[in-house]
C-alpha cells in the first residue's frame, strides 16, 4: 500500500488512506455535523480547511439540510454518503470503498460515480468492491474474485473482447415459458430480464440449436453486444456448478 506493508506501516499508511466500510462505521447517536467534526479531529484537520472541504462534500452529497439529523435516523443512501464524506475529509491518496452503493438510489449512485471520476481525475486511486456488474463496467480495471480466487483481471473492454460466449435477446414468446425452456438447455449459460423479454448468453456456435428450441414458443433470437454481467454470469457458472 503506497510502497509500504499495511500490516507494518501503521499510522503512516492509514493517514494516506480513506476507508468506507460495508458495515456501519459512524457513531449512530452523533449528528451528521458531529460525525464530520469527529473525523476531522481524528485527522487533525485545521478549522478553515475543514470548513471548506465539508461545505463541498455536503454540497455533493446533498446532506446540507440534514446536519442535525442523527446518523441512525438517516436512510441507507444518506448514511453511505455521510460515511463517504467522512472518509474524504483528509484527502487520502487511496480510497477503499467496500460495496459503497448498497441501498443507494440511482440518482445518488450516479452522483457518487461522478464524484469518484473527479477524485480519480485529480490523482486519487480508488479501489472498490461491488456485486453489481453495471458498476464494475464503470471501472478502469476490474478483478473478478469468486470463492477466494481471482478469476479475471483486466480492463472491462478488453475482458469483454476476449469473451467467448454469444449474447442474444429473445424476441417474442411468453417470457416465463421461454425462460423455462431455456433453463433446460445446457448451451444457455445465463438468462436475465431485458424489458418484457430475456437476454441470454449461449456457447459460441450454439445459437442455431437454441433458436430451433424456441421456435415452437414463437420466439426468436436477435444478437446483442455482451456486457459485463453476461461475462460474469457465464464465467462463474462452471465454478458454481463445481
Amino acid at each position: 500500500m503506497l510502497g509500504r506493508d499495511p500490516a507494518q506501516g501503521g499510522p503512516a499508511v492509514r493517514e494516506s488512506l480513506g476507508l468506507m466500510p460495508q458495515q456501519a462505521s459512524l457513531y449512530p447517536d452523533l449528528s451528521v455535523a458531529e460525525n464530520l467534526r469527529f473525523f476531522a479531529r481524528l485527522y487533525c484537520l485545521p478549522r478553515a480547511l475543514f470548513r471548506e472541504r465539508s461545505l463541498r462534500l455536503l454540497d455533493i452529497t446533498r446532506l446540507g439540510p440534514f446536519l442535525d439529523r442523527r446518523a441512525d435516523a438517516l436512510s441507507g443512501g444518506m448514511y453511505k454518503k455521510l460515511a463517504l464524506a467522512c472518509a474524504l475529509l483528509h484527502r487520502p491518496e487511496v480510497l477503499l470503498l467496500d460495496e459503497p452503493t448498497n441501498g443507494v438510489d440511482p440518482v445518488s449512485r450516479r452522483e457518487l460515480w461522478a464524484l469518484l471520476y473527479e477524485l480519480v481525475h485529480d490523482g486519487m486511486t480508488v479501489l472498490l468492491s461491488t456485486p453489481y456488474m453495471d458498476e464494475a463496467e464503470r471501472c478502469h480495471r476490474v478483478g473478478l474474485i469468486h470463492h477466494g480466487r481471482l478469476l479475471l483481471d483486466g480492463e472491462p473492454r478488453a475482458l469483454l473482447a476476449k469473451f467467448e460466449d454469444e449474447t442474444y435477446e429473445v424476441e417474442g414468446g411468453e417470457r416465463d415459458r421461454v425462460d423455462e425452456r431455456l433453463s433446460s438447455l445446457s448451451d444457455v449459460h445465463a438468462a436475465s430480464p431485458a424489458g418484457s423479454t430475456l437476454r441470454i448468453t449461449v456457447a459460441r456456435g450454439s445459437a442455431g440449436t437454441v433458436a430451433t428450441a424456441l421456435t415452437p414458443l414463437h420466439a426468436s433470437l436477435r444478437p446483442v453486444v455482451p456486457n459485463f454481467e453476461d461475462l460474469f454470469l457465464a464465467r462463474v457458472r462452471p465454478e458454481a456448478a463445481a
Partner: peptide, 13 residues
C-alpha cells in the same frame, strides 16, 4: 423523472 431537487444551500457544520 427524478430531477435532482436542490434542497437549499448547504452551510458549514
Amino acid at each position: 423523472v427524478v430531477a435532482r431537487p436542490r434542497d437549499g444551500e448547504a452551510h458549514a457544520p
